[in-house]
Design a protein around this nucleic acid. Structure first.
Lengths: 223, 223
DNA sequence: GTCTATATCCTGATAGAC
DNA sequence: GTCTATCAGGATATAGAC
């Protein structure tokens, strides 16, 4: 059995993901964690402290994976392709759903909804967590798409993030399908059920690569 | 001076957009509207009734414009281009920012954040409002992209919506820039300040068209 | 239709015993 | 570290006078 601190973190992550930060009370969290109400304040000081602790422990490994993969791609003899870079960015985020050690579907959904629609006060403290990743990927994409201007590229990255976050925050439906597949595992002859999130990653990578590669304004066709 | 009902609707729309539905109290709304607290329950029955009333009056004209524009495109002698259809879908949404008669930036942001991250109970009642639009645009896109399979197209539409909603929910920063341009209107010689949202629409249309048009899995290059 | 006053409940937070 | 008990305030909602 886990410690009190861990149980609070996990129950909170789950409820925050499902109902949102504001709509989730500490009482609901401590009830699910089977823990005393006062324990939250003992371990985290306040509700905001709890929220920050949740993000701190999830964002770091996610970003580390993104940065490591980009470093590997850039150190390779063959220069990386656009799809590879996009995959290194969105893949680790969308694959959170099958990483229970990193919070699984709940973590993914929480990240998706919180970052897509940041609470004013929280935004200032979680946005900087992504600064390094954003900067390094922007540089890598710029090198690959020299014909796309700086402002235009910033917008295209913005659109990519939007498509990714929307998919992350909607993932409960997808996760549900994955779980159903798991239940029907006999049908697949005992082998692993199909990985729906892998198809989602491939599709998102394809879409985003198409959007990033698109024509530059000046060279655009009339329609 | 507006009626009590209108003042409540407008204050609520504004606060909901800025802070979110759960985080906004009826007290904050009635204080901003300079209206009595009980007036909300008299006119709308409950907080949920108020929320529904807000969406009902904003979504209908938005969807009407989208449908009308698609009808016009399809009735034309020249068949519509992909960019035209995408523009007819995302344009009216992103241009809400300069339609104060439809709620302006607040309405746009509220739609963006609420639809991107739906509250469980509300979702069942607002999602159907978009069914007709989604179905008709899906059909139009399918005709234009016959090589893209049904499932793949559904995902690409999903990504398009994600990129659009993210842009809508983030628009306060963009709106801020527009307002700043307005203040510096002397620089533009008294003419209208540049329309940032038009640039955003063009960029989003370009990005989405590139993503929708992307290669189909089977024909994909190895990297 | 609008207001005051209030009912009822839930929220985050804390004091202090064990 | 964990618990009970409680505080002070804010939430939605309603009753009833005007």
């Amino acid at each position: 059995m886990q410690g009190t601190r861990e149980r609070i973190l996990e129950a909170a992550e789950r409820l925050f993901a499902e109902r949102g930060l504001e709509a989730t009370s500490l009482r609901a969290i401590t009830a699910m964690a089977r823990v005393n109400l006062a324990a939250v304040h003992y371990h985290f000081g306040s509700k905001d402290g709890l929220i920050e602790a949740i993000f701190a422990r999830r964002v770091e490994p996610l970003n580390r994976e993104r940065l490591d993969r980009l470093t590997t791609l850039e150190a390779r003899a063959v220069p990386p392709g656009l799809e590879e870079i996009v995959e290194a960015f969105v893949g680790p985020a969308l694959r959170l759903v099958r990483r229970p050690d990193r919070g699984g579907a709940f973590c993914m959904r929480l990240l998706g909804r919180t970052i897509a629609v940041p609470v004013e006060a929280l935004h200032a403290r979680i946005a900087p967590l992504f600064d390094e990743v954003r900067a390094r990927y922007a540089r890598a994409l710029r090198r690959l798409l020299p014909h796309v201007g700086g402002t235009e590229l910033a917008w295209r990255i913005h659109f990519m993030v939007g498509a990714m976050l929307f998919t992350m925050s909607k993932q409960p439906e997808v996760a549900q399908r994955v779980m159903n597949d798991g239940l029907r595992s006999g049908v697949h002859g005992g082998r692993r059920p199909p990985r729906n999130e892998e198809a989602a990653v491939r599709r998102l990578v394809r879409f985003v690569a198409g959007g990033l590669r698109g024509p530059t304004p000046r060279r655009m066709r009339s329609r």
